[in-house]
């Protein structure tokens, strides 16, 4: 059973590690959804989580910003360190954590408010702007980072829910970066988008890695290959293999990984 999980490779990348998970277990009631996961997620890198549906990718992702706290039956064990600090320590307020670790969801979920207010909400509640001018600046900067500024700059007062699916998702990414997070978690951000919108979002992810550590869950192996530098393959709650994306796709060590990327399981 030990062989189910990759050995933990602290050392080479230690300086660059953003998130470090040690023996993480996640339970939904009696359902053991994540088993003994050890992984180091690097800064300024795109890390892809791949694996068959139901293998626990979302569950693990959500334990990185404690979104699992909102599910009453969910229990997380083990250590998850962000910059060396235990995010599950009793003195940590999940609200502060989530300001540092932003999240983008599978289905675009803009607030039913104006585009401006969608972006401004986070900075407002975290007190990032001292006045209207600063807030305007943050909104513009975030929308530019979300690669959607040119499309919406003339209608910031229009409802965010009135945009197209791809625009909504980029708005949600802009909303997530507006609070100046250090990590951006994305759970299948393109699964509700058409190929053109997907390409736009992928391009955006590529730009975002210059400033953030990005973790993206994806169903599409092509997408993982295109956007990520590191890939983690999950299977039945185990982290089977974690390595450079090129290695995973060209020279996987585990037969399960190989079967999955060649389309035999999943």
């Amino acid at each position: 059973m030990m062989k189910d999980n990759v050995e933990n490779k602290v050392g080479v990348d230690a300086m660059n590690v953003k998130f470090s998970a040690r023996d993480v277990q996640v339970y939904y009631g009696d359902n053991h959804a994540i088993k003994d996961v050890n992984v180091d997620i690097l800064d300024k890198t795109v890390t892809a989580f791949i694996g068959p549906s139901g293998c626990g990718k979302s569950t693990f992702l959500r334990s990185l910003n404690r979104m699992n706290d909102t599910i009453p039956i969910c229990r997380v064990e083990g250590d998850i360190l962000l910059d060396g600090e235990d995010i599950n320590a009793p003195q940590v307020d999940p609200v502060q954590l989530r300001a540092k670790v932003g999240m983008v969801f599978q289905k675009p979920n803009p607030f039913p408010k104006s585009i401006y207010d969608n972006i401004a909400y986070g900075p407002r509640i975290h007190g990032l702007a001292r006045n209207k001018a600063e807030l305007d600046e943050i909104v513009e900067k975030s929308l530019r980072r979300g690669a959607i500024w040119d499309e919406v700059k003339d209608r910031l007062d229009a409802p965010g829910t009135g945009l197209s699916g791809g625009q909504q998702q980029r708005l949600c990414i802009a909303r997530a970066v507006a609070t100046e997070p250090e990590v951006l978690l994305m759970d299948e951000p393109c699964s509700a988008l058409d190929p053109i919108a997907t390409a736009q979002v992928e391009e955006l992810i590529d730009e975002l890695k210059a400033s953030y550590s990005v973790v993206i869950v994806t169903h599409s192996m092509q997408q993982a290959a295109r956007v990520s530098q590191k890939t983690a393959f999950f299977h039945l709650g185990n982290l089977v293999e974690y390595d450079d994306t090129t290695t995973i796709f060209t020279n996987p060590r585990d037969t399960r990984t190989e079967s999955y990327i060649t389309g035999r399981i999943g």
Binding site: M67, V95, A99, N109, F111, Y121, G122, I125, A176
Partner: peptide, 21 residues
């Protein structure tokens, strides 16, 4: 929809802010 709550919690709103805003 729960997605609205997730959206608010995901950018670091507290439970109370999520509910009232």
């Amino acid at each position: 929809p729960p997605s609205i709550r997730e959206a608010a919690l995901g950018i670091g709103a507290s439970k109370m802010q999520t509910v009232f805003h």
